[in-house]
Simulated assay, not measured.
Amino acid sequence: MSVTLNRRTILGLAIGSLIASVFPAAAETFPERTITLVVPFAAGGSTDLVSRLVAASMSKTLGQQVIVENVGGAGGNLGAGQVARAEPDGYTILMGTVATHALNPLMLKTKPYDPIEDFAPVSLLVLVPNVLVVNPQLPVNNVKELIQLLKDNPDKYSYASSGNGTPLHLSGELFKSMAGVTMEHIPYKGSGPALNDVIGNQVPIMFDNLPSSSGHIKAGTLKALGVTTKERAPSFPDLPTVAEAVPGYETYTWNAFFAPAGTPPEVVARLNEAAKAALADPEVIARMKDFSATIVGSTPDELASHVKAEIQKWEPVVKSTGVTLD
């Protein structure tokens, strides 16, 4: 009997040693195949632009392709929910935003995922200003003139956003509340389709992420009235802030990588390293500077703290606007 027990003990120790050695080795060889980066919005918006830029650089670092998959709809919830339910192996990750990890969880009556429990934070990548833009045919040249136009013509004008519950939607609702004006909200399945209709003058007004609108502003196909951050954007130093006309107004978005909860820490660390390497890429730095995105490159723990702080910050704002989603 003692011989059998000794053999079992030895076998158990051998298996334990094998498991301990194999899993770190697997993490060291990660990735061994293509990684899918889910962007929970349609192509063409700010999140999509940042995702493709960072993914291309990460592909070089990791030696495997990081491909972007756009899963738009439900204000980012469809794509975020898909990643929350994905295999926690690091091969499916999410480009999360303030919408997916703060605003939507606060506004949704039925929550398809928990923004804290269902994800493994990887890295906070960038902070992105929003911008108030209008079709050039709209007879206004600044925020004060827009406010006056809306007050003189109540319920006549509408504004586009990238979807219900997105930061751009909330930016519009907060503006309406603080400026004392009315506009009908027209939600789209992403910033790209919304921008197309604003440029085509189907909808005259939009709050957009500055990166996706910057080219159109420079080309003159959109007229920028103000950025939504406290300070003016370095890439558009002559463009006033909305707060200069509406004191206290401020909104912005951010982009961050998340993996499904349960992803091995070694894999999360590898993704974090690759993300930081991409953010140190001179080409990425130059492009981010073009549209005034502030590079962060946090640790997983710092991103976890950021998400909790964002939820606490936006909760009273969401309650004050009364926005809820089914």
Rank of each mutant, 00 (worst) to 15 (best):
R232L: 01
S212Q: 12
E32G: 15
N142V: 07
N164C: 08
L225W: 04
F23S: 15
F175E: 12
P300F: 13
R232F: 00
I217D: 04
L18I: 15
M288D: 05
L168K: 02
L174P: 06
S298F: 02
L78C: 10
L168R: 01
Q65L: 15
Q137F: 08
P88Y: 02
L195P: 01
E69R: 15
I67Y: 05
T182D: 14
K109A: 12
T166R: 05
E283R: 13
R52D: 06
E87F: 09
T294C: 02
S51D: 02
V198E: 04
M206H: 09
P240F: 03
M288K: 05
Y159L: 09
A293L: 00
L49A: 05
L127H: 06
T97C: 07
Q82N: 13
P247V: 10
F207I: 10
L170R: 03
T221Y: 13
P240I: 01
L5F: 14
K176Q: 14
Y159P: 02
Q82H: 07
G297L: 11
L271K: 01
E173K: 06
M95E: 05
Q202F: 12
A219M: 07
P115Q: 08
R52F: 00
G226H: 02
E250T: 00
K189N: 10
P167D: 09
L168E: 14
G248C: 06
A74E: 07
V134A: 13
I199Y: 09
E310V: 00
L18Q: 14
A277G: 09
A293H: 01
V122S: 11
E87T: 15
I217N: 04
G96C: 09
V71I: 11
A233M: 01
V128G: 00
V318S: 15
V39C: 11
A14K: 10
I217P: 04
G75F: 01
A309R: 12
T241D: 01
A219V: 02
N209Y: 12
N153W: 11
E283S: 14
A194R: 04
P282V: 10
E117K: 08
P88L: 00
T34R: 08
F119M: 09
M95L: 12
